[in-house]
Amino acid sequence: MENHTNETTPTAVRPFRFNVPEAELTELRRLINATKWPERETVADASQGVQLATMQQLARYWGTEYDWRTCEAKLNALPQFITEIDGLDIHFIHVRSKHENALPLIVTHGWPGSVIEQLKIIDPLTNPTAHGASASDAFHLVIPSMPGYGFSGKPTSTGWDPIRIARAWIVLMKRLGYTRYVAQGGDWGNAVTEQMALQKPPELLGIHTNM
């Protein structure tokens, strides 16, 4: 079913891992901690916008508390891949269930989001018997990063609207060898998923969306 290779042809599905150089993390923290703050707002509520104390608390979290390495390890523990579609590199997570009759499902994140939002659903959907459900509830999961998001390529011209992204997702599922699948998307992913349905690929059995 899968078509993961180490080839270098444009249509190859290439394994992917990501490790941020420590120097870049250090520089990012330095820039955050060097923020020059304005005077506080003249009211005691948020009627003039996000309050200074809230922004300073947020900066402290990202500058001193957030641990990127933990997130990086979670991502790199999963099967991640890159493949070129319509001239653009598309990053995706592909986790197959141990249950052979699992239904393939492509899940599209929203804006301003990323595949990190979907990490929590991977085990319940691919391994439902470990969460009190049955093997018939299992899915093979494909979770792509939309163009310009996460580790997918950044478009250099306009035109990557939901219609074009939907077309790319249809190509992706076909490239992975899936002859029947369903799709889900929320927020901006909702628009992409609806466009997949409107394009009527014969392999797509149904969709679920949320806003």
Rank of each mutant, 00 (worst) to 15 (best):
W188Y: 13
V50T: 15
D67P: 00
M196P: 02
A46F: 14
W68L: 07
I163D: 14
S134P: 00
T129A: 11
A135C: 01
P21Q: 10
V50K: 05
Y66A: 06
S157F: 08
T193M: 06
A53T: 09
E72A: 03
T193A: 04
E24C: 05
T83A: 02
K120E: 15
L31C: 06
D137A: 11
R14N: 04
E22C: 00
E72N: 07
S134F: 04
K98I: 14
A102T: 09
D123G: 01
L78A: 05
D137S: 12
L75H: 15
V171Q: 13
L204K: 06
A23C: 08
L141N: 10
E100V: 13
R30A: 13
E117K: 03
R40G: 11
A53Y: 07
W169R: 06
I32N: 03
I143F: 06
E24S: 08
N3A: 12
T209D: 04
S145C: 05
A59M: 13
H109V: 05
V13C: 05
W160R: 10
I165V: 15
A197W: 11
F81C: 02
R167L: 04
I170G: 00
W169I: 04
L31G: 00
V20S: 09
F18I: 09
K98M: 07
T126D: 08
E24R: 14
V107E: 02
K74P: 01
R40S: 14
